[in-house]
């Protein structure tokens, strides 16, 4: 089966519908599927619920989908870097479901692994636990969190072969594997598609079984907080 598509728009053709749940990889602006986000903007698909750790910044990443009002709800752990997000949220135009970061990652991983719910200590005694089932295990209280089963996953990797085996680079891996796993269909964008056999099978980070469609493209890879140290005299 052919997985490689020419453009992000072609790779999303036939898989979009209004009101769908999309899981997106990335942490801050690191490792975000920027080309697929642009294609979502172009597609005009709307009323989206997006599970993503962050919501991009104004004018980049998921911030673009906010500007066009295509997002109805975000499931995130931290959204502080986006003025348009805050404006829409405070005016009631945008729904927000806060998830502790590890709970969000595990909800994606669980969904992808066929696990509809799991118990965690994270958030017990806080607003996060309100309305959730509590249960004792070995003398401690845990809350029930549900797996995320997304209609579509959009992720970004460094390299892929044409069968969809993915390799990530440094901390750009972050939410991408879990996000990829939890979607009915996963579309991945990579910096380079290499010939079959040129990736070491022992060093594949995400097996191609999770990846249905694939594109290669140029990435801006914007840096959110550029921090440096002074070079001391050698």
């Amino acid at each position: 089966m052919k997985k490689v598509y020419a453009t992000a728009s072609e790779a999303l053709d036939g898989v979009l519908h209004d009101g769908m749940l999309i899981a997106a990889g990335g942490f801050g602006l690191c490792g975000i599927p920027e080309l697929l986000i642009d294609a979502l903007v172009e597609s005009g698909v709307k009323d989206l619920t997006i599970a993503s750790n962050n919501a991009g910044v104004d004018g980049f990443g998921l911030g673009k989908l906010l500007e066009t009002r295509q997002i109805k709800k975000m499931m995130s752990s931290y959204v502080g870097e986006n003025a348009e997000f805050m404006r829409q949220y405070l005016s009631g135009e945008l729904e927000l479901e806060f998830n502790p970061q590890g709970t969000l990652a595990e909800r994606m991983r669980a969904g992808g692994a066929g696990i509809p719910g799991f118990y965690t200590k994270t958030g017990v005694g806080t607003v996060i636990a309100e309305g959730k089932e509590h249960k004792e295990f070995r003398g401690e209280t845990y809350i029930l969190e549900e797996g995320i089963f997304a209609d579509l996953s959009i992720v970004k990797a460094w390299k892929a072969d044409d069968t969809g085996n993915l390799v990530f680079r440094k901390t750009a891996r972050n939410f991408n594997p879990a996000a990829a796993m939890c979607g009915k269909i996963c579309v991945a964008e990579v910096e380079e598609i290499v010939p079959r056999g040129s990736l070491d099978p022992d060093l594949i980070h995400l097996p191609g079984i999770y990846v249905h469609r694939l594109i290669q493209g140029d990435h801006e890879k914007r840096i959110e907080q550029r921090t440096v140290r002074k070079r001391e005299d050698a």
Partner: peptide, 19 residues
Amino acid sequence: PFPYEGEEDPDLINAGKQT
């Protein structure tokens, strides 16, 4: 530690999103 100027890598950040 933080990188030297010119050696920042957008794929390498901490939880505060710093290079």
